[in-house]
Write a protein that binds this DNA or RNA. Structure first.
Lengths: 225, 225
DNA sequence: TGTACATCAGTGAACGCGCGTTCACTGATGTAC
DNA sequence: TGTACATCAGTGAACGCGCGTTCACTGATGTAC
């Protein structure tokens, strides 16, 4: 029997619509009419809407996590005994994302936007699924970040990593809108690649800022370390 | 006639539920049963669910924008002819948020979370409403940022401001969850004030990073400026 | 080679449910004369 | 002071709608003997 084309059509339509509108704002009827398949086909092939959401993520995250794993292997091999620097680590991650073969021109935007939504929209099942499936490459990235910032305390590092994730997920999840605004304002065209290239130095500088805590004299609350 | 207590009860319940679950995931029935008022009271007092969402934002943003405006007045008066520095500007914003009188202990978290959601969830009507109502203090903040970073090109500044907003909105919108995780991991307690005090130096460093663009040798794409 | 059965992708129509909103109504309070 | 009316906050029940899911069914293809 020929591999079902319906499955791919559903995944393609769902991916685009989820990226555009979010998960709960996208109905199965929108997806199936965009994909030109029968409404019941989603439940037939995937079982439920939640399972479809997970399948959309799995389709791009599984190859990405392999690519990333190999890229980290390369990096550590190149570095020998000294741990990779923060810039190297961030850049390998960014480059792996940029270099992933994309189904369409907008593929990278969609990928980023979906990751941002996964982080942002409270889909409990999705969070659990991603933690189970992709804890390995994520944990490895965290380990590399730790080795690259030995000067930071665990608490400082924790918060700064959250700030990095926030800036990244947020910017990337609205990258289309932000590019449009910039185009209207200053007449400048921007690629997702360029946004990434601007983001990395921003993150690296923030991560390595010398003052982890701002002094709050008027509140008498914290001390600069 | 006594000022309706029902209105406040609805706003209180809606504020908490929106912050917990997002806008479209919170139904009027959840809100009215938490507030212990009749279902129809929301449409009676506010007209629609969207108008209720806007009223929740107006209740805390209107006093906040006055406070912020006065704080910027003070800052500019203190600085005389030289423009305020980046650190001063960021800190005045942060301090204004922290010092706002709160309806509850969790008030500041809720406030932050709602702002994050406003930015993140695609509620067209809300974006329009906020742009109309609060363009003034927002524009003033942007002007101060511009004067504090004369070394940046308009494009560089644009992207870095997005990165800042992203890190802030994102972290603050998940601040409760992130504090819980840190507590479980390292046994450390954290206040929202402390998160803000950590965020400001991170943002200031990123904003002032010397390299606006990362070199991408393998892609031959961009040049460092 | 022919026949009976199994498997599979896909379909059309309906299911029950929760949603935001509406409507006719009540009862208390204020106002005009 | 008494009466008729207007205004207002709030209510209970229902409305129509879109949602995810289910179910009985079709028709094509593969398999066993």
């Amino acid at each position: 029997m020929a591999q079902s084309e319906t499955v791919d059509r559903i995944l393609d339509a769902a991916e685009e619509l989820f990226a555009e509108r979010g998960f709960s704002e996208t109905s199965l009827r929108m997806i199936t009419s965009k994909a030109k398949v029968n409404l019941a086909a989603v439940n037939y092939h995937f079982g439920s809407k939640n399972a479809l959401i997970q399948a959309v993520f799995a389709r791009f995250l599984t190859p990405f996590s392999s690519t990333l794993d190999r890229a980290f292997d390369d990096l550590e091999a190149r570095c020998g005994d000294t741990p990779p620097t923060l810039n190297q680590t961030l850049w390998v991650l960014t480059e792996s994302a940029i270099r992933m073969p994309q189904r369409s021109e907008r593929g990278l935007s969609i990928f980023m936007r979906l990751l941002g939504l996964a982080y942002t929209q409270s889909q409990g099942h999705l969070r659990k699924f991603l933690e189970q499936q992709y804890s390995n490459p994520f944990g490895r990235f965290m380990r590399l970040l730790k080795e690259a910032t030995p000067q930071l305390s665990a608490v400082d590092r924790y918060w700064r990593i959250q700030f990095m994730l926030g800036a990244t997920a947020f910017t990337m999840s609205s990258s289309d809108a932000l590019r449009d605004i910039l185009h209207n304002k200053l007449g400048v065209e921007t690629t997702v690649q360029e946004i990434a290239a601007r983001l990395v130095p921003f993150l690296a500088a923030g991560m390595q800022a010398s003052d982890p805590l701002m002094v709050v004299p008027s509140l008498g609350k914290t001390a600069s370390g």
